[in-house]
Simulated assay, not measured.
Amino acid sequence: MKKNILVVGSGLYGSIFAHEAAKLGHKVTVIEKRDHVGGNIYTKEVEGIQFHQYGAHIFHTSNKAVWDYVNQFAEFNRYTNSPIANYNGEIYNLPFNMNTFSKLWGVTTPEEARIKIEDQRKSFGIGEPKNLEEQAISLVGSDIYEKLIKSYTEKQWGRKCTELPAFIIKRLPVRFTYDNNYFNDRYQGIPIGGYTRIIEKMLESPNIEVKLDTDFFANQAELESNADKVIYTGMIDQYFDYKYGELEYRSLKFETEVLDEENYQGNAVVNYTDEKTEFTRIIEHKHFEFGNQEKTIITREYPSDWKKGDEPYYPVNDEKNNKVFEKYLKLAKSQNKVIFGGRLGMYKYYDMHKVIEEALIAFGNLELS
Rank of each mutant, 00 (worst) to 15 (best):
I5T: 02
G14Y: 08
A21D: 01
H26Y: 04
V28A: 08
V28Y: 03
E32M: 00
E45W: 09
F59K: 03
H60E: 03
H60P: 06
K64I: 14
V66H: 04
D68F: 08
Q72V: 08
R78P: 00
R78C: 05
Y79S: 10
P83V: 00
N88H: 12
N88A: 11
E112R: 11
I115T: 13
D119K: 15
K122N: 12
G127T: 10
K150P: 06
Y152K: 09
R159W: 02
A166L: 05
P173K: 03
R186A: 14
Q188L: 06
I190S: 05
Y195K: 04
T196M: 03
E200T: 07
S205K: 01
I208W: 01
L212V: 05
F216D: 06
L223T: 09
E224N: 14
M235R: 14
M235F: 12
K243I: 10
E248W: 11
E255C: 10
L259P: 02
D260N: 15
E261C: 13
T280G: 07
Q293V: 11
I298K: 10
T299V: 01
K308W: 11
N321P: 06
L331F: 09
N336E: 14
L344I: 03
Y347L: 02
M352E: 06
K354R: 14
A359S: 05
A362Y: 06
N365F: 00
